[in-house]
Design a binder for these strands. Sequence first.
DNA 1: CGCGCTTTGTGAACGTGTGCACAATTGCCT
DNA 2: AGGCAATTGTGCACACGTTCACAAAGCGCG
Lengths: 217, 217
Amino acid sequence: MARLPVYLRILVEQGDENIDSISSERLAELAGVNAAKVRKDLSYLGSYGTRGVGYEVAFLVYQIRRELGLTHDWPVVIVGAGNLGQALAGHGGFGERGFPVAGVVDIEQAKVGSVIGGVRVRHIDDLPQIVQSRRVSIGVVATPSAAAQDAADRLVRAGCTSILNFAPVVLAVPHGVSVRKVDLAVELQILSYYEQRRVPVGLHAVGSNDSSRGASA
Amino acid sequence: MARLPVYLRILVEQGDENIDSISSERLAELAGVNAAKVRKDLSYLGSYGTRGVGYEVAFLVYQIRRELGLTHDWPVVIVGAGNLGQALAGHGGFGERGFPVAGVVDIEQAKVGSVIGGVRVRHIDDLPQIVQSRRVSIGVVATPSAAAQDAADRLVRAGCTSILNFAPVVLAVPHGVSVRKVDLAVELQILSYYEQRRVPVGLHAVGSNDSSRGASA
DNA sequence: CGCGCTTTGTGAACGTGTGCACAATTGCCT
DNA sequence: AGGCAATTGTGCACACGTTCACAAAGCGCG
């Protein structure tokens, strides 16, 4: 389920505030979803709640981490040291959440050697060496559209089996390789869609990807 | 439908290559989806295909643009001039696709005045003025998590009715405001999930958000 | 001019995810 | 010890999106 990461983040936050027990209703409120959905999602992991009380935060965090495979770090390699690649590498949020940046590569020699986010940019030809020595299985494509497929091919050849793609193209990958796409223009266009038909009456929240909802501000 | 933007991009690309007619099957292949799904999606816009021939690319582009509300530009304002905000503003892909950056604001005076992507960073107190003078209805939250809710509140107060949120928090917004969230860590965690259970056999593509699929590389 | 090939549009079956409602279970208070 | 309030776990109905399969419709060729 795609909601587990959201629950996880909320539970970790609650844990940081020394809250050691939480009800499905409270968790649902914080995650912006239905309480029944939370319970169903969690029951999928097993019966880890206590009736009349709720869920033990620490234990639930552990279970979700285990389910998501977050019991150990997953080093990632970023292909493309342009605007986006630099922002991702320098962001810091990756490493904190269990996805340390094992390397940043670019095809342009001009970019090789510069240091961003504490990582030196290397040439894309070094990709196989980085992937193998650091046991990387997740690659991030942060190149221009035209170079994205080549970047993906190189990642796959180097041994990556999961790709996070920021380029607005549909990547072709071999069977067995997972791909997720983040397309900023698509997100904006979806907002535009709702924005355009805002004439009738101010209506509701927006479906699919989201989570948000709730009143006031 | 969230797939319309993908179709649109592909159709524009095809149009650039002087292809003026396309079948649902070809479009489905390029978009990485089922052909029947393409036809059903397009039939939702009306019957704009010609049986035995296919769809006229230019006309379809026009229709999808109209449906998505992309007949005119939607200026956006970016809140947060950190790593991510700078990358987004400097990216250029926004303006090209009909979402020109009307402004970048930050709460830190130290960042005010610098120029990124041809836009000068202004103080967040100028937000209402920017939003109103430029008729902005879409705001982008590119702040740290702790500041995200405040940024969203300010955007709403200034008059924005759609928000694209990059901070890993669930934003509370008034009824009638659309929110979409892009959480990089969530995407990586979903990949981690599939990566973890890759033991049995290398299996398939990944659901929901995606689009990818297809063979070889 | 008609026949066959191609491709759309859509009815219908199917699977999946969602939400309700309630029984089962636990803790607490008296 | 017993009853009450709270909360989980889940069966069930429903709505939605997906896919198949086929009839309707257009094009080109003989």
